[in-house]
Amino acid sequence: MSPDSSPREPGPSGTLHTTDAVPTHRRRTYWREALSQTFGSVDMGVPDEIDRGTIRTSPLGPMQVVTVDGDPLRALRTQRLIAGSDNGDHVVVKLLSKGVARVEQDTRDACVRPGQLFVYDMARPIRMTLPEPFQSKSLVLPRDVLGLSETELRRITASPLDSETPLGALLSPFLSRLVDTADRYPQRTADSIARNVVDLLRTLADDRLGTASADTENAARGSLLRIRAYIDWHLADPDLTPEAIARAHRISVRYLHKLFQLEDITVSRWIQQRRLEQCRRELSRREAAGLTIAAVAHRWGFTSASHFSRVFRAAYGASPAEWRSFAARAPHMAAPAHSPQLPYMR
C-alpha cells in the first residue's frame, strides 16, 4: 500500500485497515489492497466509490480472527491466484453478521443469510458475492488443525449452517463474541481458548459429515465445549460456580452436571483443575517471581491461600513454593509463558 494509506495498528497483536483517513479518490485502490492482504491473492471487484470499509485482525493461537465491515464486493480466487499465493494451506470459517452473500465452491452454489456461517478452503477456487453492505466475522486457520482429509473438507465447504439448528444456535453467537473479544486475552488464555475452538470446529465438521453418533450427543458435546471455553474465560472470578455457569448458559445445574459426566469429572473439580494448571504455569514464569504465592492463587480465583497450597500439593506432589523453586533452578522444564501446553480433556 502507499505510504499515506498504510494500515493503522490498534495494538501490538492486531491490525486495523480503515478507509476513514484515506482520500476519497484513493479509497477504492486502498480497499482492494487491504482485502487482498487479509485474505490472500484474490481478484476483488468493488464499487467505483467506496463509502466506508474497516478490517480488524487479531491472532488467537494458531488462528487469525477477522472482522470486515464494508460496501458490496465480489471476490474471486482462481487456480492461478492460488498457485501464486502463500496461504493456500488455510481454511476460513465465516459468519455473516449483516447483509447477504452468495458463495460458490466445490460444485456448490449457496445463498447465505445473516446469522449463518460457512466454511471455505483457500486451496481451491472460490467465488463470493456480497451485493449489499455487510459485516462478516471469520476464523482463518491452518487446514491441518482440523484433521480433515481432502475429501472430507470438500464435503463441508460452501454449505451454510443455519442459526436455527441446535449446533448453529450454539456456534454462531459463540464465534461472534470470540471474534469481538479475541484481542483482549493474554497469550496463555488465548492459546487455551484456541484449543477449545478447534474442538468446536471439529464438532461442526462431524455434524456436516454425519459422523456424530446422534444429534443429541453432538449437541451435548458442543454445549460442553462451549462451557469449557466459558470457564477458561472466567477462571479468575472467585464466584465461578456451577450455579453461575448454568445461569449464564440458560441451562439447569442438573443438566450441567450431566454434561460433565461425559468427561468423567465434576464441574467443580474441572474448575479447580484448570485453576491449578494456570497457577502452576504462573509460578514457573520468571516474570511472576515478584508475586507472592497468595497473589498468584487469588489471580486465578482461589480465595484461600492455605486451601490452594493443600490442593496444589495433592495435585503435583509438591508445595507451590517447592514448585517455584524447582522451576527457577530448571527453567527449561517449566512450561513457557508464551506457549502453555494445555491438555485436551476428552
Rank of each mutant, 00 (worst) to 15 (best):
A236N: 12
P238M: 15
P238K: 12
P238S: 14
P238A: 14
L240G: 03
T241C: 12
T241H: 08
T241Y: 09
P242Y: 06
P242Q: 11
E243C: 05
E243D: 10
A244M: 09
A244G: 04
A244P: 01
I245L: 07
I245C: 06
I245A: 06
I245W: 06
A246T: 03
A246R: 12
A246F: 10
A246Q: 11
A246N: 10
A246E: 08
R247E: 15
A248L: 04
A248W: 04
A248K: 09
H249A: 14
R250L: 15
R250C: 10
I251R: 13
S252D: 13
V253P: 02
V253K: 15
R254E: 12
Y255I: 07
L256F: 09
H257L: 07
K258Q: 15
K258W: 10
K258P: 01
K258A: 13
F260T: 03
F260G: 02
Q261N: 12
Q261K: 15
E263V: 01
E263L: 15
E263P: 00
E263W: 04
D264K: 15
D264Q: 14
T266A: 10
T266R: 12
V267H: 02
V267W: 07
S268Y: 04
R269G: 00
R269E: 08
W270N: 05
W270T: 00
I271H: 08
I271C: 11
Q273C: 01
R274Q: 15
R275N: 03
L276K: 02
L276I: 02
E277I: 02
C279T: 06
C279Q: 05
R280T: 01
R280Q: 09
R280E: 07
R280V: 00
R281Y: 08
R281Q: 15
R281P: 00
R281F: 01
E282H: 11
E282R: 15
E282P: 01
E282D: 13
E282C: 11
L283D: 04
L283I: 04
L283Q: 09
S284Y: 00
S284G: 13
R285Y: 08
R285N: 09
R285S: 12
R286Y: 04
E287K: 14
E287Y: 07
E287V: 07
E287R: 15
A288Q: 14
